[in-house]
Design a protein around this nucleic acid. Structure first.
Lengths: 215, 215
DNA sequence: CCATGTGAATTGCTTCACAGCA
DNA sequence: TGCTGTGAAGCAATTCACATGG
């Protein structure tokens, strides 16, 4: 199948899927590239181009079957299996994630949590027991964990990620405000609220400056 | 000054700034485009090109003054002022955000929180009193809130965002898994953990499939 | 007739390579 | 000499426009 799909395409596929799941729940049968585009913030041509990298899923003159396309996208994204996830660092973010019910619904099982803080260890957070770091390796192996969510303080993030990878993790979702250095085979995505807020500030400031000058 | 800066450039500027703040705290005086690139996951040419859209901040043959460049970036991103933020929806994510100490440090003051849940209203979460939605308009005006963080359930997100904008918000950080429809003048950024996890699944699945075929 | 699927055109981003200057 | 700043080249992504087929 097609090679080297861009990051932005994958992001959009995920958005299409999110929308399709809603449409499917509402028992809508058919959707057009235009409708899908409007509800995900892109263009109809973009939707068709994105999908065309993987095959032809629509019927000319009609559109796409909602359930069918949903299933196709789930296959493309690798979501026909369940994924086992561990949370490293059970502070505010870690706890919020452990309690986030949507994960299970979407195929992600948070099966383990780790922390170094003695007062946290042994506690039950949203049904998951907080384990000491020294149990990381055995738990990752036993539970076949492939995704590690880094929610530690920034100083501990790189070490935690390295250790997760050595223990078998193949993907890292990083909440710590630092660029992790990982070997090429490991997938990494970063989530940094401050970064997003700063992006918004830029846009608001620019918009203000632009109107000052132009209008 | 330069027009139409791309989203990816703004994101990188924010990363450079994040790094520069660390270097500044460590009292490093000078940094080269290469060093900045390595610690933020890009290339030296990219760093120089990004900065060149706004001026020339370096010294040829030496590099960039750490403090100087930090201040320049703060100005470019609009971070020389403080920004007042409200959180809409005080569930798990909302609470975690309210307790996130970094905000204050980085120029963001979370000054208000809203919820519809009676049992939440009036409660103090990390020093902020949870208000009923009906007080939104007056609080936004009185407190001059320009950024709204949407942390409501997905069904309530669009309405909450609309209301925040009508009350004066100029930027939205959206944690709900839905594409918000906003008028063009409003800046929006989306944070969806599931979306990021799905992106990771694609990469892991692809990597697996690629090695199956090739190696 | 209508919406998909897709080469071709275009736009925009990144990388290159080197002139310019401390 | 060394690293910045920047036009020009190269590459990737998006948009266009239309042939295709239900």
């Amino acid at each position: 199948m097609a090679r080297k799909i861009s990051d932005s395409t994958v992001r959009r596929l995920s958005r299409y899927l999110r929308r399709l799941r809603t449409l499917d729940r509402q028992e809508l049968k058919v959707v057009s590239s235009r409708e899908l585009a409007e509800s995900t913030g892109t263009t109809a041509a973009q939707v068709r181009k994105d999908l065309s990298h993987f095959g032809s899923f629509g019927k000319r003159g009609q559109g796409y079957g909602v359930t069918d396309l949903r299933v196709q996208l789930e296959e493309i994204l690798g979501l026909t299996r369940r994924w086992r996830v561990a949370v490293l660092g059970v502070g505010r973010i870690g706890s919020a994630l452990l309690g986030y019910g949507f994960f299970t619904q979407r195929g992600f099982d948070v099966v383990a949590a780790f922390d170094t803080d003695r007062s946290m260890i042994g506690r039950d957070v949203a049904g998951v027991r907080v384990q000491p770091l020294k149990e990381l390796e055995t738990t990752f192996e036993e539970q076949e964990i492939s995704i590690a969510i880094i929610a530690t303080p920034v100083e501990a993030a790189q070490k935690a990620a390295d250790r997760a990878v050595r223990a078998g993790a193949r993907a890292i979702l990083n909440f710590a405000p630092i660029k992790l250095r990982m070997s090429p085979g490991v997938a990494v995505r970063e989530m940094d609220v401050t970064l997003e807020l700063e992006g918004l500030c830029y846009l608001v400031t620019e918009a203000g400056a632009a109107t000052d000058v132009k209008e």
